[in-house]
Every structure is written in C-alpha cells, then in structure tokens.
Amino acid sequence: MTPRNVLITLLVLLFAPLARAHELRPAYLVLRETTENHFDGSWKVPARDNRRLGLYVRLPDDCVVVRELSGAFVDDAYVERWSFTHPAGLVDATIRIDGLRETLTDVLVRIERLDGSTQVERLSPERPEVVVRGALTKLQVAGTYTDLGVRHILGGVDHLLFVLGLLFLVRGRAMLFKTITAFTVAHSIALAIATFGYVNVPPALVNTLVALSILFLGPELVREQRGETSLTIERPWLVAFAFGLLHGLGFASGLTQLGLPHSEVPLALLSFNVGVELGQLGFVAVLLALGVALGELQVRFGPRMRRLPAYVVGSLGAFWLCVGLSALI
C-alpha cells in the first residue's frame, strides 16, 4: 500500500461517518422555576417496548412535592412530570440520579430560573449528581462559557470542514492569517448581533446556508487545483468574511440553545466566542503542524489525492444541504 492510498482511506474514513447522530440517547431532566422557590420538573428516560431505563431522580430531602403526574411512555421515552417547592430555591442543593452509576447513559440536566438564567449539566455514570448553583460569579461565567465555546466548535463538523476548505484554498502565510482573521471577525460580529436579538434567523435556515457555504468551497477548491483563478482564490478573506457571518449565526443558535445567564450576558458571549476561537485555532494548528510534518516526511500527493479534499468538502456540503433543505420543507 502506498502512502497515498492509505491517506485516501484515512481521509475518507475521517469524514464519511461524522454525519451520523449519537445513537445511545441521554436522559433529560428539566427543572423550571415557575414562581419563587416553586419548580416544575420533567424527567424523560429512554425507553423501548415499554421498558424504561432504571434511572430515577432523587431530589433533595427538603423538597416538598406538590403535585405528581404518573409517568407515561411517549414514543421511545418514558416521561414523568411533577412540581415541587424547595425552601432555598434549590441553591446549593444536590440532585442525584439513582441508577446512573450502573449504566452507560448520560443525563442532561437543565435548571431554568425565574430570572431567566439557566444551568446546564451533563451527568455521567462517573458523576451521577449535580449541585445546583446560585448566581454565577464572573469567573465562573467566563470559565463555563469558554468551555462551552470550545465544545461547540469542536463538535461542529460543518464549521470545521469549512475551515478545512479555507486552509486548502489559501496560499501563503500572510493570506492564511488574513483569511482566518476575517472569518473570526465576521462570525464574532454575527454571533453578537444574533445573541442580542437584532437579527433572528431560524436555525434550520442557518444550517442550510452553512451547508451551502461548504458546498460553495468544493468547486472553488477544484478550480484552485486546476490552476484557474476566481474571486475566492484571489481574495479568500472576502469569502471567509461573508460566510463567517453565516457561521456566526450558527454559533449564536448553539449559544441560545445552551442558554445565557440572565446577568453577565456580554461576558458570557465574549467567553463563548473566545472558546470558539480557541477551538478553531487548535484545529488549524493541528492541521498546519500535520502539513509541515508531511512535508518533512517528503510525502508527495498525486493529482487525484490532491483533488480529494475538494470532493470531500463539496460532497459533504451537498449532503448537508439536502438534509437542511428537507428539514426546511
């Protein structure tokens, strides 16, 4: 096997199955404060054929359950609802998930407060409980949202693929710097505008447009390979800026889903953006290091291999576009 063949295999392997969704579903616990110290809870456990996973919520002992609706199987989940009060509004209280330690499932816990702030936690078999926090300190907000930002970009294959496409399109360090900066500036602007509510684009539309931006890069990459030129190839930063605005809207919908704290919105937004940049820079750094390393090893790619990124980027863009369009319709 030549290095080229292996690389083709690796690259195809790298990108083909990423579109698949997570298969083992997590359980969801949502606690919503309705009036002062009064909460509505809903608990959704994965189930199949009228068998539910043996996961049970253990509320703090000083909770008083006001009303409890019996659980029911809904589609492929078992849902319980109840409402309760807690003297301290759950601040510093511990919520446990019984039975979680014995499973491989994760539990997403989301606590929504009257003031609009939310706390989102992911519990795992190794960490089956969560301590509900009061108002966040500034440092906690910054830390949490930076972390969320890194996770968001590293989990966003479409964004990373667009960056990958840009990297293959750009020639020279100065141009690379300009392009990445343009992309960063643009998505920061869009993220801020969308988060503050000046622009409101439905997430499904944003996803479709992001897919379109990836599809757009495919033919441009082919053109670049053929030695032809275009506006994109001469001024990649322009394209990076334009589509960066779109990607920023995508980040914004991610951030909205995660929930913003009621106070400290600008700080949370900034931290989230910093996290996104860190993740993105890390990705770019790994790719550039790999490029230098392959050069050092004198790996030479044939014309077919060199065209591969273009086709991978293009076809995945097209695929996601179809998925997005079907979701829109």
Partner: peptide, 8 residues
C-alpha cells in the same frame, strides 16, 4: 476508570 476528565 478515568472518565470525567476535562480536555484541558
């Protein structure tokens, strides 16, 4: 086993 380790 090690399961909940922050990337950082």
């Amino acid at each position: 086993m090690l399961h909940t380790i922050d990337l950082l």
